Computed example of a mutant assay.
Amino acid sequence: MALGVSYNGRAFEGWQSQASGITVQDHLEQALASFCALPRVQTLCAGRTDSGVHGLMQVVHFDTPLQRDDNAWVRGTNRFLPETIAVQWAQRVPSSFHARASARARRYAYVLLESPVRPSVDCGQVGWVFRPLHQDAMVSAAQTLVGEHDFSSFRASSCQAHSPVKHVLRIAITRRGAYWRFEFEATAFLHHMIRNIMGCLIAIGTGKQPVSWMAEVLAARNRDAAAPTFSPDGLYFLGPVYDASWGLPDRTPAFDWLP
């Protein structure tokens, strides 16, 4: 069975199950177990998110002998979930489907508020910078990262990925009023990779570093060469990209409200 799940990550210690039980996976698996009347239901996700990071279309799969229609899975599981987590869709999939391994790419968006005053109503939903940003400089620097590269300079020390080499397919930077949206698509991402890239882009956008600095950071293959890790507040996992042959819904709920 596959599910599409959205969540506000601010109250959780990331996606992956932990002893504390305060993770999205813990809540989802408890809800599924309650709905299925089983001691435990174990899930596998398309991409783990950190503490404070939001998910608009996390995809998970799990094995179950229970036969229910798709809408029953959605309504029944949501009944046992906190209000900040919601199953968006459910669909039976063949046993060959794997939420992580079957994904061709993954997409994220970072929403950033440029304002002399910190966020209030959207606190926890957006990152924040109080200095003006220069779009052309950030766009030029971002293009340095497109393609297949060794992203060691943007890799957290706790990263468990087998290789730092990843293929970034697209980075787009747009602005609407006081809000910036940075969109990232890659075959896969390293731990903290986007937040570390964001730190560098903002350093360049505010004029602290030249555009050429991004290439220097990338070539260094050393985390110490890059900017500090940026806040998780405005980071959204938009979801994985699968081949159409799987027949999974291709939609990202609530994406349009993001500036």
Rank of each mutant, 00 (worst) to 15 (best):
D233W: 07
M214L: 12
L190D: 03
C159G: 11
W180K: 11
A226S: 14
F230E: 10
G207A: 00
D233R: 03
S157Y: 13
D224P: 09
F189G: 00
A220D: 05
N196F: 02
A172V: 12
Y236R: 01
R181I: 10
C159Y: 14
A219D: 11
V168S: 07
G239M: 02
P232Y: 13
A178D: 15
A226Y: 05
T187G: 15
D233T: 09
L169I: 11
G177H: 14
G199C: 07
L169T: 08
A226P: 01
R176T: 15
A178T: 14
M193H: 04
A156P: 09
D224S: 15
H167N: 14
A227F: 06
G177Q: 12
M214F: 04
R170C: 12
F182L: 15
A225G: 02
K166N: 13
G234V: 01
I197R: 00
L235P: 00
R221T: 11
Y242G: 00
I171D: 01
S153N: 08
L169V: 02
A161R: 13
K208I: 04
S157T: 14
I171S: 01
Q209S: 03
F230K: 03
T187E: 15
Y242F: 11
R223N: 05
R195D: 07
P210D: 04
A220R: 07
I204E: 03
L201W: 00
P228W: 08
F189E: 03
A219V: 01
S231I: 08
G234K: 00
M198L: 10
M214I: 08
R176K: 15
W180D: 06
K166V: 10
P228H: 05
F182W: 13
S158P: 06
F237P: 05
I202R: 00
V168I: 14
L238G: 03
G205W: 00
A161V: 04
E216M: 04
S212L: 02
F154L: 10
F154E: 06
I171N: 04
F184D: 08
A227P: 09
A220C: 02
P232Q: 10
R195P: 05
E216N: 02
D233N: 12
K166R: 15
R175D: 11
Y236D: 01
C200E: 09
R155S: 09
P228S: 06
F154M: 08
T187M: 11
L235E: 05
S153G: 12
I173M: 10
I173K: 06
A227I: 03
A219L: 06
A161Y: 09
D224C: 13
A161H: 13
P210R: 02
E183H: 12
H167Y: 10
P240W: 04
R170W: 04
I173Q: 07
P164C: 07
R175C: 12
T206M: 01
V165K: 10
S231V: 10
R223L: 05
F230V: 02
W213E: 12
A225N: 04
I194F: 04
C159S: 13
L238M: 10
V165L: 10
G207Y: 05
F182H: 08
R195S: 09
P240S: 02
A219W: 04
H191K: 13
A172K: 14
P210T: 03
N222C: 14
G239N: 03
W180C: 08
C159L: 11
Y242E: 02
I173A: 06
Y179A: 14
G205A: 03
S231H: 14
M198S: 04
K208M: 04
I204M: 08
A188R: 10
K208S: 05
H192Q: 14
T174E: 15
K208A: 11
S231P: 07
